[in-house]
């Protein structure tokens, strides 16, 4: 059975109240949604709360998902994205102007999992540097406008294609491409500035 078929079967089972099917969906998508929330919202705490909210929303509205109208992933992404935008609007006023030197959040304190599990063979300095780089790129991403940020997250971090992104964001594909390019260029300029200051 294809992945799409498996998922649509799971969704159908869920709508009949099958708790095991729902757990399977949570298992399949929680990592992806958590990462999307984390990169968009910036903090591990917010990401955890938002991921939970996304699943609550999904659980309540699962019946409204129409298998024929598009991939489940697109629907999941739309639900997530809408909650992220709401969250952004709500927190816009109490958000402190963050700089690239702002304190590291939970995940930036810890080395990436791949480095925890297996020593990458890099000398310690290089590992610390890579850890630092992760943090700096994460902070720079948060400085992009929400439109550009969500576009690059979906494309470069979540590996979605332009069509899927266009459907999830409900904008034309051309707009998606333009936002991705502007987002990438803006990020590069921010990081270039940071590294020029350091050097």
């Amino acid at each position: 059975m294809e992945d799409a078929q498996v998922v649509s079967l799971l969704v159908r089972r869920c709508t009949t109240g099958d708790a095991a099917a729902w757990e399977e969906i949570v298992q399949r998508y929680h990592r992806r949604i958590y990462n999307m929330c984390y990169r968009f919202a910036g903090s591990a705490d917010d990401a955890q709360d938002l991921t939970q909210e996304v699943f609550i929303k999904m659980y309540r509205t699962l019946k409204s998902y129409d298998v024929d109208r598009g991939a489940f992933l697109t629907w999941v992404t739309t639900v997530t994205r809408n909650l992220l935008v709401d969250h952004f609007r709500k927190t816009k006023h109490d958000r402190i102007t963050d700089s690239l030197d702002s304190p590291a959040s939970e995940h930036e304190d810890a080395l990436p999992l791949s480095e925890q599990i297996a020593d990458t063979g890099l000398p310690p300095d290089a590992r610390v540097q890579s850890h630092e780089t992760q943090r700096t790129v994460h902070q720079a991403l948060l400085k992009l406008s929400p439109d550009l940020r969500e576009a690059v997250i979906l494309r470069d971090l979540q590996d979605m294609d332009y069509r899927e992104i266009a459907l999830a964001l409900r904008v034309p594909e051309g707009t998606v491409k333009s936002r991705i390019n502007r987002g990438r260029a803006e990020l590069a300029r921010l990081l270039q500035r940071t590294y020029r200051q350091v050097m």
Partner: peptide
């Protein structure tokens, strides 16, 4: 910018 974004690793929930 694309290469910077590609360097970002997935975090553990």
């Amino acid at each position: 910018g694309r290469l910077w974004l590609k360097s970002i690793e997935e975090v553990e929930p």
